[in-house]
Structures are given as structure tokens and as C-alpha cells.
Design a protein around this nucleic acid. Structure first.
Lengths: 248, 248
DNA sequence: GGAAGAAATTTTGTATGCATAATACAGAAG
DNA sequence: CTTCTGTATTATGCATACAAAATTTCTTCC
């Protein structure tokens, strides 16, 4: 697998032009977006998508050139991502993309199970009818993509549904915790090749989940979510076991 | 309440002397401890203990002087703490200690409830006898401090017990998530004045919790932990409601 | 040829400098 | 006295400079 960075010609995030050498600012900017925050989002995205593979060394000079910024905001972003657990800081030796240890991912699934169960409970109790209608709409979108075999779009709606479900319980802390763990797990999922059978089953499970939510059947929803997540865990863990039997 | 910083004469964290102007390093240092990491720990501690009160403005120049470092590692530390949610970054306006919104704290208790329930389950299943013996020992220490009316020490052992219980389930991700939420909640608890009755009851609850753990009665332990946490929530929420009826 | 060690290079950690945004302050107008 | 406006001050965001550590490269010796 490639670990080399693409020689992108430093498209540069700098738009607000606060830098000493820069010439002219432009956008009126309703809300100032700081560089480190932008970099956090970009790097997190690249890590989650697997473009920055686990254990990739993050060379500051290279990243700075790619992003068209100086080391200061980059290093701030790395600290932020380290706190999220997506980056590991090695004192005096820089930063690397966090490893994807199967044991740790499994632990994350267990915790996410507890969070999703709680989320299901809260959603049944607190979700508005509009929330549920939105989830139903996303569900049908997802099923449509499934029918057409469009995996990427299926995944996207799948994620949207799970996030919306978690959010509609009205507990922002829960949503935040879930999102954070989910980012880690998503990294692993990019390796997992969904089998046709598993895909079929996952859609079935989603049908049942939607049904339980509509009926606000908390007990059943919790059980279904647990089951769904458990199955997903199996798939991901298998993929993970297959993709790194021995680290070279 | 004081929000002003103490004029500490810059005791300086700099020991490794990598700075341009610094004179001499000293400690052989088995493992290099970086400045930003040190600052993260210090600031987090001050925030959790309430020495840096909620919504306190964090002036970089002042903190730099207090810590005896330059702005670079300080700002890195602030980014890290922002990711933990203990600090809020205001673009172009610096950083403030995160507010203690009762609604949010309540949400945290709900999530911690789910995590503790899981922790209880895992502890019953996975804790070694040595783990349980350690918890028991800490429990008796705690009770001794309770008997002597030593609140601070009681709290310390209380925390140790809860953390050990969470850790002995063997799920590091769970422990990490719990620790993070706990830091936030601890901030609130520093305001809560435990009544004698509540204290008595809390110790009773702990007796029952220990008993359930020793017997590895997962179902009962979960229920007891939920109850215990729920009671603690009531106390904290009352204190929080009392201490900020109107923000000046 | 390979191991060991020294010098050169790169990389990281921290401090500092500079430009812009934000705030405090002063004075004028109402 | 309050409110507005323009200016001085301060604070923040980013870039850069420099020193120590780590890594690589080049010798040297066996």
C-alpha cells in the first residue's frame, strides 16, 4: 500500500490572509474559520477514509506543503487529533496515524453497543415525529441504493441513519461520544468487504430497527440495535484479522 | 469567587532545556516529557479542581508567565483540552474554561450511567480476584475516612474505587471514555456540599456495590451502580442549580 | 562484505516576530 | 451623563528562527 503523499501543489487553505507575507484577504466571512480547525477536519477525514493508513508517519514538512500552511497550525491540529485518539504522538519522534488494533476496535464496539442501546431508549422516548419521519426517509433512500448495489451511497445513508437516531434522543453528549468512537470504527470498516448475504441481512435488520422505532418499542429497538452492531462487529473483526495477520 | 490568577513566580516547567536561551538541563529523564503534555495535565487539573472556574478567560500571556513557557506549547495544550471539551476556543478571541451547563452535566450523567452499567457487567465477568481484593481494600480505606469525617480523602478513595471498577472490566476504551466524562462531572462535584444523610447513604450504597461485585452478581451490580449514580446526579444538579441561578 | 562510529542531514520542540483582529480608552457630540 | 467614534493598546493567529534530538549517510576498520 502506498504510504507516500501525493505531490499536490499546495492548494493552500489560506484564504483569510492573516499571514505576514500574504497579499490580500477576500471573503467577508460570516464566521472566522481557523486554520488548525480546518486542518483537523481535513486530516481526520483522510485518516478515517484510510487515505492516511494506520501507523503512517506524519511528516510535518510534507503535510505543511500539502496543506499550504506553516507548522504551527499543523502541530496544533495534531495535538487535537491526538486527543481524539486518531493520532499518536511519539515524544521527539513526531506523530503517526493511530494503529488499528483489533482488540481495541472490539472494545470500541462493546462501548458503542452500550451507547446505541441508550440511544435507542432515548430516541423512543424523545424523538419527535419529524425526527422519525426523517429517519424513515433516509431509510428508503438507503434501501434504494442497496437495490442498485451502490455500496458507497448505501454506507453514507446508513451512517446518516445511525447518527440521526443517536441525535434524536436529545442527548448531545451521547451523540458526541458516539461520533468519536464511530470515527475510529469507520476506519476499520473501509477495509471490510461486505458480502452479499451480510448486506441483505443488514438491510433486513434496518427494516426491523425502523419498525421498532416507529412503534417506539424501546426494548425491542435496543435488542435489534445490539444485534445489528454485533453482526457488524463480526464483519469488521474478520476483515481486520484478514488484513493484518503479521505486521512486517 | 476568585478568578484572578495567583502571581506565581513562573516556577517553570522547563527542565529538559531545549529552548534557545535556556542554560542547562538536568534530569537524565528515562522518558521525555514534552511541555504541551505537562501543561495539559496541569491545566486540566486546575480546571477540574475549579481553581480555573467555568468561563474564566484564559489569557495566553498570563498563563505563559505562570507556567514559565512560551505561547507555542501553551496553545497546543489548549487545543488538546478543547478536544476534551474542558476548554472552549473562540476564534480570534482566545480560549475560556468550558461552561458548566446543568443540562449538559445531566446528559453526561446519563451517558455515564450506561457506561457504568457496562462496566459493572464487564467487571463481574472479567475482574480478577486480585482486582476485587484491591477494590475491597480501597473500600475499607474509604469507609475509614468516612468514619473520621475526612471528606477529601473519602472522595479520593471513592474515585479510585469507581475507576478501578471500570478498569477491571478489561475494556480500555470504556475506561478512557468514562475518565473523560468523569473529569467534567468532577468539576461540578467540587461545588456540591454533601449532606450528612446523603453521605451515609452513599456509603451504604458502596457496601452493597462491593457485595454485588464480590458475588459477581452482574444484574444487581448494574442496578446498584445506576441507583448510586442517579443519587449523585441529584446532589450535583441541586448544587449546580443553587450556584448559578443567574449569570451576572 | 559488514559492523561500528563519526559527520551530515533531517526532523522535531520551543521560542520569538509580525500582521490582523479585538478590546480598552479618550474625547466629542447629543 | 450617555453614546458614538476614532485611536491606542492588547491579544490572538500564523509564520519563522533556532537548538536539541533523531535519523541518515559516509567512513573506517575488522
Amino acid at each position: 500500500m502506498h504510504t507516500k503523499f501525493l505531490p499536490r501543489p499546495a492548494v493552500s487553505l489560506v484564504t483569510t490572509s492573516r499571514s505576514p507575507q500574504a497579499g490580500a484577504g477576500s471573503l467577508p466571512a460570516g464566521e472566522p474559520r481557523l486554520l488548525h480547525a480546518e486542518v483537523v477536519d481535513r486530516l481526520r477525514d483522510r485518516i478515517v477514509r484510510g487515505e492516511l493508513a494506520p501507523e503512517t508517519k506524519l511528516n510535518e514538512r510534507v503535510l505543511c506543503q500539502e496543506l499550504g500552511i506553516s507548522r504551527t497550525p499543523l502541530r496544533e491540529a495534531l495535538k487535537y487529533l491526538a486527543s481524539e485518539g486518531l493520532v499518536q504522538l511519539l515524544p521527539n519522534r513526531g506523530a503517526v496515524v493511530a494503529a488499528l488494533e483489533p482488540g481495541r476496535i472490539k472494545q470500541m464496539f462493546v462501548v458503542m453497543g452500550a451507547l446505541e442501546a441508550l440511544a435507542g431508549e432515548l430516541a423512543c422516548a424523545n424523538a419527535s415525529d419529524a425526527d422519525i419521519a426523517e429517519i424513515r426517509a433516509m431509510h428508503y433512500q438507503m434501501v434504494a441504493h442497496y437495490a442498485r448495489g451502490e455500496l458507497a451511497d448505501y454506507f453514507r445513508y446508513n451512517q446518516l441513519i445511525h447518527m440521526k437516531l443517536v441525535e434524536s434522543g436529545g442527548n448531545g453528549v451521547l451523540a458526541q461520544s458516539y461520533r468519536s468512537l464511530n470515527a475510529h470504527v469507520k476506519r476499520a470498516r473501509y477495509m471490510a468487504n461486505l458480502s452479499k448475504e451480510r448486506w441483505d441481512k443488514a438491510v433486513e435488520e434496518h427494516e426491523a430497527i425502523l419498525d421498532a422505532l416507529v412503534k417506539r418499542d424501546s426494548t425491542r429497538l435496543k435488542a435489534l440495535l445490539q444485534d445489528h452492531l454485533g453482526n457488524k462487529m463480526v464483519v469488521v473483526m474478520e476483515a481486520l484479522a484478514g488484513n493484518e495477520p503479521g505486521k512486517p
